[in-house]
Amino acid sequence: MPPPRTREKALRHRLAELRGPGTQPKALDARALAALAANPGCGRRAILDGAGVDKAALARALGAPSAFGQSQFALVRGNAFEAKVKADGGTELLRLAHERLDRSAEPPTGAQVPDLSAVGPSGRAARTALALREATASRGTWTLLDHPMLALDVAGSVAYLEPDAVIVHPDGSWTVVEIKSFPMLDGAADPAKVGAATRQAAVYVLALEEVAARLDPAPRVRHRILLVCPKDFSNLPTASAVDVRKQRAVTARQLARLTRVEDIADALPEGICFSPELPAEELTAAVEAVPATYAPECLSTCELAFHCRDRSRASGAVTSLGRPVRAELGGLTTVADVLAAARGEAGDPDDPAVAALRRAAALRAEALRTAAPEVAPCP
């Protein structure tokens, strides 16, 4: 077996070939990792994300561009709100952290805000780890890390993540901060948006735990994150402490199930490439060489969702109906198989899924007969 450095170098070369000549890798972020963890069986997304392929450009080249993402207006508004929250050395942000998470500690006066600048993501990750170590050692003071860089191993490749902020409490514990521009009305925000934010924060918590594990003694990474949003319809910040233990456990389990990137890459044909510059037919063949696991939830999380949806519908796969339906159908993998089983033309009658389909078909037929109006004979 080749030594680790040789294998790592060979993998980097292979992933560069998959991206195309001269193409810089697109960095993974926490939002992409949360989406990847939500669909760990999708080898297509795993290899594309692992290789750093720009999936939005790939989708446009395939003729199925994505239609989700933040608008420019939303980005500008979000950046302006974040700057307001962190103004004056993060005074307001630390006040909210003290109020929502750590009232027993001394109020955050004269907090430390270390400089985290360094060359490249790996350098910034090392500088962040050093700043966390120093802040943890100096107990009794508050420390705010503005846009730290964290490294997380995902399926054999390193993802560099940049949370909005990390707070080191006077007792040496660490808290992830998520700053969002959606409003918190009467102390509550849109559940769907809060759910997405907590899944994203859970990835940061996992990355922080890897940093903490390298320290002796290991500091405590808090599982209650600080979610900061505008209050009501104003631009004033308010915050809520959100428990992410469930999301953290699910994300850790799903990331652990991901097939390693090198295993997927080794199974691909030689010479395959996902460069958007390739002809459409060649690019389509390359994408189809990697199996995908499409579900309707992909439409809000993956740039290739429209392409995969079209292919799933064309093949009649039941995954296009949603994961809950797919789970109920057992070994029936296509819509044609489901309809044949419901009509009694195929399938094992002892299979619970087949029996349920036939019972449902019988009830539907009975309901249609009952609802059909009687037609009087012509005089």
Results as ranks from 00 to 15, higher is better:
residue 9 K to N: 13
residue 159 A to E: 04
residue 310 D to S: 14
residue 274 F to Y: 09
residue 216 D to S: 15
residue 33 L to C: 02
residue 243 D to F: 12
residue 24 Q to H: 10
residue 189 A to C: 09
residue 372 A to R: 15
residue 59 A to V: 03
residue 21 P to Y: 12
residue 171 D to R: 11
residue 169 H to T: 07
residue 354 V to W: 02
residue 282 E to G: 13
residue 23 T to E: 14
residue 290 V to P: 03
residue 51 A to H: 01
residue 145 L to P: 00
residue 55 K to P: 05
residue 270 E to I: 06
residue 313 R to S: 14
residue 193 K to Y: 07
residue 11 L to P: 02
residue 23 T to K: 13
residue 104 S to A: 12
residue 176 V to E: 04
residue 2 P to K: 04
residue 5 R to S: 15
residue 93 L to S: 00
residue 69 G to W: 01
residue 347 G to W: 00
residue 346 A to Y: 02
residue 52 G to A: 07
residue 100 R to C: 11
residue 156 G to L: 03
residue 119 V to D: 11
residue 275 S to H: 10
residue 23 T to I: 09
residue 264 I to T: 06
residue 7 R to Y: 11
residue 246 K to P: 01
residue 1 M to I: 08
residue 217 P to N: 08
residue 269 P to A: 06
residue 7 R to P: 08
residue 100 R to A: 11
residue 174 W to N: 08
residue 371 A to P: 05
residue 39 N to F: 04
residue 308 C to D: 12
residue 110 G to I: 00
residue 140 G to T: 07
residue 40 P to F: 08
residue 138 S to A: 15
residue 14 R to H: 08
residue 290 V to N: 04
residue 371 A to G: 07
residue 185 L to G: 03
residue 92 E to N: 09
residue 186 D to H: 14
residue 284 T to Y: 10
residue 323 R to P: 07
residue 352 P to E: 07
residue 67 A to C: 15
residue 306 F to K: 09
